[in-house]
Simulated assay, not measured.
Amino acid sequence: MHDRMIAIQNRTGNPEGIEVKRFGNALCLYSKTMPWGSFNTVKGITNTELEYLDSIIAFYRERERKIQFEIVPSFVDANLLKQLSDRGFYQSGFHTSTYIEPKLFNDQLPEHIRIQELNEDQFETYAMIHCRGTGLPDNGIAPVAANNKVLFNRAGWKFFIAYVNDEPAAAAVMYLKDDIASLTFAATLPAFRGLGLHQLLLKRRIEEAKQNNCRLVVGQCNFLSQSHRNMERIGMKIGYIRTKWTER
């Protein structure tokens, strides 16, 4: 997410108003034009950042944005959680982090399905799947295309599209760094759900990680969601459940 935000920030004129700031281990992400939690969140906070807590909160309040903390259970103790509660935050959700060692599945795709890497001139198609597959309106297609196209030639990023009878049906993204691959995004158009495309895209990216000599593949999903179930079906295991803390 840090690399993605820096790439978007580096677009001419920083049109999304991206700011990235660190307080110790805590990484604060902010976007002026994208109000969603994933673009306005604190990652990596540990007990040692307790002294920065008020400064982190002020960073977002100065920008009139509600703050979200992503809490990894092994990084914090009850004291930090109590301090969050005392400042008006509550636990508002759960998110699963999964992992698997890279492997080859050697599955034969059905004749009517194919998966290929995205070409540079296909980001409108990618953005259409991204928006319609996640419930965003079509007026988001152009900015989603622009904010992802900046990743095309950036080290570590790979995009894939799944086709059903030559129609674009699903998309997925991965990021590779330091022999670890992260499955960063996937979406399927409503008309093509139930065909196993999400699982096929999971396997395709895990095989890509294997071919790039990665030692680990990680993924993220909502707890007990369809994505979670698909990850477990192909052999991914739960690494930890993180919690989301939101300002009241």
Rank of each mutant, 00 (worst) to 15 (best):
M1C: 13
M1P: 03
H2I: 11
D3A: 13
R4A: 14
R4N: 14
M5K: 15
N14W: 09
K21G: 00
K21P: 09
L29Y: 07
M34I: 07
K43Q: 14
T48W: 00
T48L: 11
E49A: 02
L50D: 06
E51S: 10
Y52F: 13
L53Q: 04
I56D: 05
I57F: 01
A58P: 02
R65K: 09
I67T: 12
F69Y: 09
S74E: 14
L80V: 12
L81F: 09
K82N: 15
D86Q: 12
Y99G: 10
I100H: 01
E101W: 13
E101L: 10
P102Q: 09
L104N: 15
D107E: 15
P110G: 04
R114D: 05
E120Y: 13
T125M: 07
A127N: 08
M128E: 13
G140C: 14
I141H: 00
P143M: 15
P143F: 10
N153T: 07
N153V: 12
A155K: 15
G156R: 00
W157A: 06
K158N: 12
F159T: 03
I161P: 03
E167C: 13
E167S: 05
A171T: 01
A172I: 02
A186C: 08
A187D: 00
T188G: 04
L189W: 11
P190H: 14
F192S: 06
R193I: 05
G194N: 04
G194F: 05
G196H: 09
G196K: 09
E207N: 02
E208H: 09
K210Q: 12
V218Y: 04
H228K: 08
N230R: 00
R233G: 02
R233Q: 13
I234H: 03
G235W: 02
G235N: 07
M236S: 01
R242H: 11
